[in-house]
């Protein structure tokens, strides 16, 4: 039955992982704005952004630039 101690330690470390993930999420401001992300997800990527990304590719590929 000593295995249960190992199991407890394992489960606690997983739980701690989640606790730190929660702390990180709060610290990085994810709970500061609970409304706008829900709105933002509704927007399609504007076509102009895609073009500008495409344009950037040559620059990245060519170190001489």
């Amino acid at each position: 039955m000593k295995i249960i101690i190992l199991l407890i330690i394992l489960s606690l470390s997983v739980a701690l992982l989640f606790l730190f993930a929660f702390f990180w999420a709060v610290g990085s401001g994810q709970y500061d704005d609970e409304v706008t992300p829900a709105i933002r997800i509704l927007f399609d990527n504007p076509p102009t952004n895609k073009i500008s990304q495409d344009e950037q590719h040559p620059d990245l590929d060519d170190p001489a630039e």
């Binding site: 500061d32 704005d33 409304v35 706008t36 709105i39 933002r40 927007f43 504007p46 102009t48």
Partner: peptide, 22 residues
């Protein structure tokens, strides 16, 4: 939100805009 977050299309100097709706 959409208009403001795409403000860089109106003024070239703007890099990005984040709106906090609330």
């Amino acid at each position: 939100v959409w208009l403001l977050e795409n403000l860089n299309r109106l003024l070239p100097g703007i890099t990005s805009v984040r709106v906090n709706f609330a």
